[in-house]
């Protein structure tokens, strides 16, 4: 998508000119996918909330300098990814293992998605979720950006700061591991 005609970029520019409704529309379009990306990356709801709010604060602060040279979603995820990396460098312990599984399981789940009626599907989703959590950080981020955001290899490379072939290799390893977990 061309950044010049990116509707998200137009909304961001409108907000920079003082249109609060444009920001509200922009926020409504990206709030869910950003939150899920953060939640499944850090696996800590409180930390996810902090990162989520901090990411949007960066967007608000950069409104006057914003230039639509890339897709808004790519820029937004890049900010979130950098904040997440900075948090990991500060040695903030991440929740992992059973604790992370419990935390994710305790989150509100739609009623129709409860595993009472589809136990096998539930087991498969739970298996996928655990497999994603057990991936290395770089592979997990690449998989989440690919499956959740449906970003291209180049966009994932732009968000993570890695090369395209590196991203492709990470995705290959990650998906192979996920398929192995699901086939067990």
């Amino acid at each position: 998508m061309d950044a010049a005609v990116d509707p998200d970029a137009m909304l961001m520019l409108a907000y920079a000119r003082g249109d609060l409704a444009a920001f509200e529309a922009l926020y409504a379009r990206h709030r869910g996918m950003l939150y899920r990306f953060l939640l499944r990356s850090v696996r800590d709801p409180h930390r996810s909330d902090e990162l989520f709010q901090e990411t949007w604060s960066r967007v608000i602060s950069a409104r006057a300098r914003y230039q639509p040279q890339a897709k808004f979603s790519t820029w937004l995820l890049q900010i979130a990814h950098n904040l997440m990396i900075d948090g990991a460098r500060r040695q903030r312990p991440m929740v992992d293992g059973d604790e992370a599984e419990t935390a994710l399981a305790n989150l509100a789940t739609p009623e129709q998605d409860q595993p009472d009626h589809a136990l096998s599907e539930f087991e498969r989703r739970r298996g996928l979720q655990r497999a994603i959590e057990q991936l290395p950080d770089e592979q997990r981020t690449a998989v989440l950006l690919r499956l959740e955001q449906e970003l291209s290899l180049e966009e994932i490379a732009a968000v993570t700061g890695a090369g395209r072939e590196t991203v492709k290799s990470r995705l290959r390893y990650a998906m192979t591991r996920l398929r192995e977990v699901l086939s067990e």
Partner: peptide
């Protein structure tokens, strides 16, 4: 990828 993507979309859609 297609199989994994379909299964991933069935995961809970958490929101802030």
């Amino acid at each position: 990828e297609a199989e994994l993507a379909a299964l991933y979309r069935q995961l809970p859609q958490h929101e802030p």
